[in-house]
């Protein structure tokens, strides 16, 4: 049932109009100029958070949009990456790079371990198992006070300076510096993700989403491909977790709770799971809406929930998906966006 081939939103939109040179340049320019446009430290750090959330949502989309595996436990990488970064930089060695590598590597290992069991299942069972795994990690983080600080969380996670020891170093304490640091890391990882998504490997994933039996029939090891996708998603999510950890300076087990996983799925769908940058767009939308509504009215859940319900009912392709579909219908007519790979 999941991802039937009759799906209205064709896979072609994965490499939809946003990935063309102009769109990406415009977005990058906007991202680079953002600190000057917003002029306020608060919005610079909100943009930083949006960048991190974008990476997280794009990493999840490797499973949902590309491989057709709906994970309900993606927060596990946000959390584990965050705790790995915090534990390493606080207790072992305060280095940004070491912390980020620890975050990515721990999540790669975790994803590999979880993936071995998860990818054998499909549909709701897959969703359930990812949910169960993430709740196990949540429970461990919640009760293992000696290491994780339990419900109180971990405090004072550093923002170690970067550079070459002895030669030069850049402090990341200022909001703007940190924003650019995150921008560079996130842009590089998203670019990497895009490369993977558009490699032959990425196309196999899409084929698995559309029709796993056929891929199996061709002789490709579906499980192994799914496992690779699972590990890639987890590792990218882990990097996002590491960045989040140093960004907030404070983490708690809430990061691992299932509602957090739900929020990441929400970002992905909100933006559009069938376009590469859609989830990033959704992340930005959700954080921006929440930030605005939360501070202007008491009943923000009703607004966010209402938007979500209307979106699901009337814009099932997500916001970016809708605009892209609209744009391609208008500009290409009957051609149905086939030019997008240029």
């Amino acid at each position: 049932m999941e991802g039937s081939s009759s799906n209205k939103f064709s896979i072609r939109r994965l490499t939809g109009s946003v990935t063309n040179r102009f769109g990406v340049t415009a977005l990058l320019a906007l991202a680079v100029l953002a600190p000057f446009l917003v002029q306020n430290d608060y919005y610079i750090q909100l943009c930083t958070e949006i960048l991190i959330a974008s990476l997280l949502a794009i990493s999840l989309n490797f499973l949902i949009g590309y491989t057709g595996l709906v994970s309900l436990g993606h927060a596990v990488y946000l959390g584990v990456g965050a705790y790995a970064f915090a534990l390493l930089t606080k207790n072992v060695y305060p280095s940004m790079w070491a912390g980020l590598i620890a975050a990515g590597a721990s999540c790669a290992l975790l994803a590999w371990f979880m993936g071995v069991f998860c990818v054998r299942l499909a549909g709701l069972y897959f969703a359930m198992l990812t949910l169960a795994f993430s709740q196990v990690v949540y429970t461990v983080a919640y009760y293992w006070r000696d290491v994780t600080g339990g419900d109180d969380g971990m405090l004072g996670i550093p923002k170690p300076e970067i550079g070459i020891p002895g030669a030069f170093s850049i402090s990341l304490e200022s909001f703007t510096n940190f924003y650019y640091f995150v921008l560079i890391i996130v842009a590089a990882l998203i670019f990497l993700a895009w490369k993977i998504a558009n490699s032959p490997f990425g196309r196999v994933l899409q084929a698995i989403r559309e029709n796993p039996e056929r891929v199996e029939f061709i002789g490709l090891p579906v499980h192994r491909y799914k496992l690779y996708a699972f590990i890639i998603a987890g590792t990218l999510g882990g990097f996002a977790g590491g960045l989040y950890s140093t960004f907030q300076g404070y983490i708690s087990p809430d990061l691992l709770y299932w509602t957090q996983s739900g929020e990441i799925v929400l970002m992905t769908i909100l933006g559009g799971m069938y376009s590469f940058l859609g989830p990033a767009f959704g992340a930005g939308m959700l954080l921006f809406i929440r930030d605005t509504v939360l501070n202007f009215m008491e009943y923000w859940r009703i607004v966010v929930g209402g938007i979500l319900v209307l979106l699901v009912l009337f814009l099932p392709g997500g916001i970016l998906g809708f605009f892209e579909g609209w744009a391609s219908r208008l500009s290409i007519g009957g051609n149905d966006g086939d030019d997008a790979r240029s």
């Binding site: 109009s17 977005l27 906007l30 917003v38 919005y43 605009f323 744009a327």
Partner: peptide, 25 residues
């Protein structure tokens, strides 16, 4: 790459920028 999408993108970028600016009260 079509002219329309360029416009759509500019529009999007401008809306986002204006939105961000207008909320700094």
């Amino acid at each position: 790459m079509s002219g329309f999408r360029k416009k759509a993108f500019f529009a999007g970028a401008i809306i986002l920028a204006v939105g961000l600016l207008s909320v700094s009260t």
